[in-house]
Design a protein around this nucleic acid. Structure first.
Ligand SMILES: [Mn+2]
Ligand SMILES: [Mn+2]
Ligand SMILES: [Zn+2]
Ligand SMILES: [Zn+2]
Lengths: 148, 148
DNA sequence: ATCGTTGTTGCGACTGAGTTGCAACACGAA
DNA sequence: TTCGTGTTGCAACTCAGTCGCAACAACGAT
């Protein structure tokens, strides 16, 4: 089963500069947290980690930066079946979309890349004449370990 | 392009009775609103419509009933790309899953049923050994009318 | 190197979704 | 009718996310 590729560090900062977007210490801290994260982070986790790099980072700056990155198509926003509360999760958007499977018992998140997903998106674009900018497939159920 | 089937009225109430779940006037009102809705409703819209049938319905009862219906697998919870605020949307769960496409410009929601989606879910269940209980595919982009 | 424009920030107050504890209530089986 | 237990309205609460504003800082122009 194929998995998504990993991140080249410093890439987000370069991309923003390339698009003429102003860089600040606070943004650098937040970008660095997103790029080095080894799991899906919500806004408050992101805030705490960013404040370790730059204590001046404020909650509102985190949300404003997430908004910027979403508009630029550099991150994806996830629900992960709202396993813990109502908040959202964020992750670096890489070349290929991937699917998220959330185990409703142990909370484990599994990622999955599939050619059939790409094929389905093509079908939607053609048959519905819809121009897809963001596609989010999230699944809830039981992982291998949790189903009896 | 195939569309999802429509609802048999009174079905939700019968299903709950069948499972030995207590029925109340408030629940009847909420179920009736869900079954007769012609679009995806959020919790506050659901509350207002239910109160027209039974003015005693409270906000917390709406959320408690939505929780019950989710646990019973009778409704699906949607984000619809959070087009208006942060709230969620709800709809009766029918035999076949369908995909939601949200136009980021005009807000139009398009529904779509695809055999490729079914095929993709089968692949996930087999290759990841994951038992799927709920699958949600939501797409944001531009509809036919809105893309130039 | 300095300046000035303009985008960005922290702060604090705010909104709005969703939750919870509790006492009153009502469903439905006996 | 009675009774146990599930459900409700209410009000107070939590928590995510937003917003207006004055201070500030990035960075291209000078
Ligand atoms: Mn959501
Ligand atoms: Mn739908
Ligand atoms: Zn599990
Ligand atoms: Zn449109």
């Amino acid at each position: 089963m194929p998995f998504p590729e990993t991140e080249i560090p410093g890439r987000l900062q370069a991309l923003l500069a390339q698009r003429g977007i102003r860089m600040t210490d606070q943004r650098r801290a937040i970008l660095s947290v997103i790029e080095t994260a080894n799991k899906h982070l919500d806004a408050s986790q992101l805030l705490r980690k960013a404040q370790k790099l730059d204590p001046s980072v404020d909650r509102s700056t985190v949300y404003r930066t997430l908004g910027l990155l979403k508009r630029q198509g550099m991150i994806d926003e996830l629900d992960l079946m709202h396993l813990n509360g109502e908040g959202h999760y964020y992750e670096r958007k890489l070349g290929r979309d991937h699917i998220h499977m959330a185990c409703l018992r142990c909370g484990k998140i599994t990622e999955f890349v599939s050619e059939r997903f790409e094929s389905l998106k093509s079908q939607m674009e053609q048959e519905c004449r819809f121009h897809i900018l963001v596609a989010r497939l999230e699944v809830g159920g039981y992982c291998t370990a949790c189903r009896r």
